[in-house]
Design a protein around this nucleic acid. Structure first.
Lengths: 167, 167
DNA sequence: ATGGGTGCAAAATGTTTGCACCTTT
DNA sequence: AAAGGTGCAAACATTTTGCACCCAT
């Protein structure tokens, strides 16, 4: 029995390009593309940003409320093994996920004061990674670095605060 | 009642330099330096490398087996608030800790194949962090980045393996 | 006496696993 | 029939919390 898992195909976008890849990798190992797996993939596909397991599960349940959290975990694990899924750890004890094929390799600057995440594209990191290769022989495969610090706005506010204290 | 928490003072090294800092920050907030906190700090001080909570707890228990895990957690939390403690997440679900004052700001290159950690000093990262400031106005405070990739040895082995498959 | 700190046990959180049942091939 | 996949519940691991009691000021 097939469940409608991706309503967006009618829009004609090359939607779910990653589904082909997923199916291929599943078949390679004798695994199947089930409606549940399709739904998880679809939800991941539609994320503008990375999401936690709970968020993914909640969205999947809107499509079919019977889908279990354990199934979501199991599917995410598969996607990770296949290298299709990036795992992001912001240090708050929650893992966040996103499809690598959709968002491309990128990184985040995380403001420790306001929490804002600033996207950093792979190419902005490239010179640094190349230096690692040349100087240390290390071939970096950084897909998702989180660099903590202070965003521009918060730098200003902290400076203002320091002023106020001094006065 | 005072418990001997740091046997190494007799060696004459400027041992436990961080203890002064810890005491000062505690006092600032009306908190106390207890034997338990002293022991946790001492254990952290003697680590060659970062350690998990369990490892720290085990070492503290060698000094006084009554010390509770919860106390270790509470002390680590304090040290974090004071900015004296670096938390490292290698992605295996365990947090590792080390005193910033002892080991200095540094980072790690982590080989995804053999698991080896290669130390990367702060100054090796500096040009990149400065570029972030100049180009994006972001003031990075990266204290402990983990950059995944392949170490030199494993690059060679992967290449050899690829050859073998082709043949 | 006031308030911080501890140990202990319970709870909360996030994730994994065992298993009976269902589904696809 | 064989093998994979699911939902459910229980198990797990890590971390946090509530509380009675202890200790320092």
């Amino acid at each position: 029995m097939m469940v409608v898992a991706n309503k967006r195909n009618k829009e004609g976008k090359a939607s779910m390009c990653c589904q082909q890849e997923f199916i291929r990798k599943l078949r390679e190992r004798g695994f199947r593309l089930t409606p549940q797996r399709e739904m998880v993939l679809s939800v991941l596909h539609d994320l503008e940003d990375h999401a936690t397991v709970e968020e993914i599960h909640a969205r999947v349940q809107k499509l079919n409320s019977a889908v279990d959290l354990a199934t979501v975990y199991r599917t995410l694990e598969l996607l990770q093994e296949f290298g299709l899924l990036a795992v992001i750890d912001l240090g708050d004890g929650l893992h966040r996920y996103e499809l690598t094929s959709i968002h491309g390799s990128h990184h985040h600057l995380q403001c420790r004061r306001c929490g804002k995440l600033i996207r950093l594209e792979q190419h902005q990191l490239q010179p640094f990674l190349e230096a690692l290769q040349q100087q240390l022989g290390f071939q970096a495969e950084a897909e998702h670095l989180i660099i903590p610090g202070l965003c521009q706005a918060c730098q200003a506010e902290e400076a203002a605060q320091a002023h106020a204290c001094a006065a």
